[in-house]
């Protein structure tokens, strides 16, 4: 297999993806990702020179609308879903030391 996923790569991805894998999960992730990337590499057989990347099947244009304020007053219902709330706000751990 050409793809040796290193511990360093996994650590970097854990930071990007905000995940924290167990030692067993890290080993599995290295194996799985290596296999997937090996399989994905077959895309390199395709000559895509001059082909524009297609992020979307149809042309996407900006969708404009009149700038009219529409108030939805459901703060209570929204806050009910929050794991922690205080004084009508989402409560989060300290963000600045």
């Amino acid at each position: 297999m050409r793809h040796q996923i290193t511990d360093e790569t996994i650590s970097q991805l854990e930071n990007l993806a905000k995940l924290e894998l167990s030692p067993e999960e890290r080993e599995q992730a290295k194996k799985d990702m290596g296999e997937m990337l090996h399989y994905i590499d077959r895309l390199n057989e395709l000559d895509t020179t001059g082909t524009e990347p297609m992020s979307h099947v149809f042309p996407i244009n900006n969708v404009f609308r009149e700038d009219i304020v529409e108030q939805e007053n459901n703060r209570e219902a929204i806050l009910k879903n929050a794991p922690a709330q205080r004084d009508g706000s989402f409560q989060v751990p300290k963000t600045l030391e």
Binding site: K18, L19, M33
Partner: peptide, 20 residues
């Protein structure tokens, strides 16, 4: 990190890692 690690299952984490 803890929330996402405990909240997501194996397949979801596998795809998030690959996507990242």
């Amino acid at each position: 990190k803890r929330t996402r690690t405990e909240g997501f299952g194996t397949e979801v984490k596998r795809r998030i890692m690959l996507g990242s």
